[in-house]
Design a binder for these strands. Structure first.
Lengths: 217, 217
DNA sequence: AACAGGCCCTAATTTAAATCAGGCAACCAG
DNA sequence: CTGGTTGCCTGATTTAAATTAGGGCCTGTT
């Protein structure tokens, strides 16, 4: 298991709820409205005429999709999340350049186009970059994909970041250890970049997610 | 264990809340306010630094005093009753006769007196009857007690009812089975009255509670 | 055809809640 | 002082919730 196999949201699973997830969520709403208290898994199972284990599975899905929140192993610890991620609501993000190829250009005038992204993902100043090269192939980032990046000067250990090294932009995973910083590609064919404390490293932003334009869009 | 040992509210426990019951009720309120969902017995126990079994006991008290409502054996099935029984508020109920002695007289003009009863117990048309005889001794109903009765033509299995059999009123516990109806006294010394479907049985009302006038009142 | 994903099921298993059974100490009223 | 009431406790026991494991059945893709 490569640690680099960490998944980013947005590329694999399609957004939105499946019909039965929607039904479940609706059942939860109704139950709370009628009884003033959240249902148990079993109660939902009875309502929907399916088994508890199935409900449990769907609750897991709803949880990971951010529609509900709950505390493991606690009876009725189920809460509908305020902001049901406005799945369909999308906002445009400017595509401002490419990475692994050269210096991105920030000026809005120079935009190369736009890409629609779910509004709930976008926080702060964001932009999109087209990917060049396969240096992050193990993180499922490929040539031609678009990275949605939030501009921020700091990042955490393990984040995939867009960094500026000697005026060249690059996408790498950030590793911070005691004595140095490393920018590691997610492709064994590419070299790890080591950065000494005194070297200049400018982090442009953090990669929030990846988009792949498919014919349907 | 006689099934007839079922207790009726009103005769034993004095009204009002004890300090610790008040504390418990307050803890429940706070918990709901903070978590948007009712606490479990254990959670209350932790909050109050006492054992779950003690909380359970107190919840029983609060329940019988009408401050909360809950469903047995269901997690978090705890609800604060809207109308915190106006403990002191009492309304007068007319005493209209005696039972096990003869036909009660309904006319208000003929009232024999009044008895004060907590307002929250009284729903619908109610009246009081003085008890004669010891036929319900195991249900803690004794000679001279007053029964608070709600006038209603139907009753459920197990209810203590005032029934009219051939123009004579009597208090008995009602048992309904497949093929017949029985009126059972709560005293082995008295006979069970069996009623065939074709016989006439008129249920006058259901006994809500019992009052024993003591010197203090 | 061979997968992958979504949805549901049965059959356990694990955990947490609620409840039961006695008992003990403090307190109050007769 | 003695009995009844309260509030608590300890130590089971019983129930219900939640969760896990492993499969079957479709359907849409590759």
């Amino acid at each position: 298991m490569h640690p680099d196999n960490q998944k980013l949201p947005g590329i694999g699973p399609k957004e939105g709820l499946t019909p039965s997830q929607e039904r479940l969520l609706e059942a939860i709403r109704t139950f709370i409205a009628e009884n003033d208290l959240p249902p148990t898994v079993q109660e939902l199972a009875d309502i929907l005429k399916i088994k508890g284990a199935s409900v449990h599975e769907q609750l897991g899905n709803l949880t990971s999709k951010g529609y509900i929140r709950r505390t493991p192993r606690k009876a009725r610890s189920l809460e509908i999340v305020e902001q049901p991620p406005p799945v369909s609501e999308k906002v445009p993000v400017s595509i401002v350049g490419r990475v692994a190829a050269g210096l991105p250009i920030w000026a809005v005038e120079n935009r190369l186009g736009e890409i629609m992204v779910e509004a709930n993902l976008v926080r702060g100043r964001c932009f999109a970059l087209e990917v060049e090269g396969e240096s992050m192939i193990e993180a499922d980032i490929h040539e031609g994909d678009y990275l949605i990046v939030r501009q921020q000067p700091l990042a955490e250990n393990g984040d995939i970041v867009v960094a500026l090294i000697e005026d060249e932009a690059t996408v790498k995973r950030l590793f911070i250890s005691e004595d140095r910083i490393e920018l590691r590609p997610a492709n064994p064919a590419y070299p790890v970049i080591r950065i000494a404390p005194e070297d200049e490293l400018k982090i442009v932003g953090k990669v929030l997610t990846v988009r792949r334009l498919d014919p349907a869009e």
